[in-house]
């Protein structure tokens, strides 16, 4: 018997050598993420350079497309005065996004675990998503007034669909053999959910959150366009009305920065949670 067992001892040079050591793997992934952010910066610089070039070469008037330099100077001088608008837009986006998560993930869990809920809710969800939700903005203002509520609702509405869909897809797509394994160990459905289904669905859920957070920002800005007198959406609208194009562009740049930061925050979460998993092959 001992003979059999000693035979099976792994030798480091055998065919079963690990692909990579964990420390090296972590290093590669971290460098990968930093590299990714670096590439974003490079592309931003490229866009600004092209922008400057176009304005200078075609001598485009300031009130049509201001040069990056003047936008930068506006950014530098006005960011203080519109800081409350920045805060408002960020807050609406985050609250709306959080609401979409709080509603969307339990809804997705219900859809994934019950045929009845799926049949009842799915068609409603698909139909409501088919309505161009931006068209609903005036309705929301009529319902919820001119405060931040309609904007938050708009942000949540836009973020909800991708979050629900990707969570459902993740939960339903779990390898049936894993579920069978749980049942064989006499685990109840809640334990199977906690130990197997949810972690298995995590990559898909995080993918949905990435799409959702960008849409939440869009929703908040659309809400600000339509009503109220705060937020970067309002700033853009006002600036454009007063022919202060450099201010409008400064606000747009700020929106882009907010969108990119939020996206990469979730990307960072993804790398923290999933860095040990096999890369999609």
């Amino acid at each position: 018997m001992a003979d059999v067992l000693s035979r099976s001892t792994e030798t480091p040079s055998g065919p079963d050598e690990p692909v990579e050591t964990p420390t090296r793997l972590r290093h590669v992934i971290q460098r990968g993420w930093v590299g990714q952010v670096g590439l974003v910066l490079v592309s931003v610089v490229a866009i600004v350079a092209i922008w400057e070039l176009v304005v200078v070469v075609f001598s485009i008037p300031k009130f049509t497309l201001p040069a990056p330099v003047s936008v930068a100077s506006t950014l530098f001088h006005s960011t203080g005065s519109i800081s409350s608008d920045i805060a408002v837009t960020v807050e609406e986006t985050i609250v709306g996004f959080a609401a979409a998560i709080v509603v969307g993930i339990p809804l997705a869990v219900a859809i994934a675990s019950s045929r009845l809920v799926e049949r009842l809710v799915y068609p409603m969800l698909v139909t409501s998503n088919a309505v161009p939700k931006i068209a609903l903005a005036p309705v929301f203002i009529a319902w919820f007034g001119l405060g931040s509520v309609p904007r938050v609702v708009m942000a949540a509405m836009l973020a909800l669909f991708p979050i629900v869909i990707s969570t459902v897809v993740g939960l339903v797509g779990v390898d049936p053999a894993l579920i069978l394994l749980g049942r064989a160990a006499d685990a109840g459905s809640s334990r199977i959910f906690r130990l197997i289904r949810l972690p298995a669905a995590l990559p898909s859920i995080l993918g949905g959150l990435k799409v959702g957070v960008t849409l939440a920002l869009t929703g908040a800005v659309v809400g600000e366009f339509v009503g109220g007198n705060t937020g970067l959406g309002y700033v853009i609208e006002q600036a454009q009305g007063n022919l202060r194009m450099s201010l409008a562009f400064a606000a747009i740049v700020l929106l882009a920065v907010i969108g990119v930061v939020l996206f990469y925050l979730i990307d960072l979460l993804e790398h923290l949670f999933l860095h040990n998993r096999r890369k999609a092959s």
Binding site: L180, A184, D186, A187, R191, L195, I196, R278
Partner: peptide, 27 residues
């Protein structure tokens, strides 16, 4: 104890944690 054709290891758990899944699943 049961094992299938595909090893069905959980990619997010270490080797030891995958073995201990048996205890976790049984509470």
């Amino acid at each position: 104890g049961i094992a299938f054709q595909r090893d069905s290891l959980l990619e997010w758990r270490t080797v030891l944690d995958n073995v201990l899944l048996q205890a976790d699943l049984r509470g």
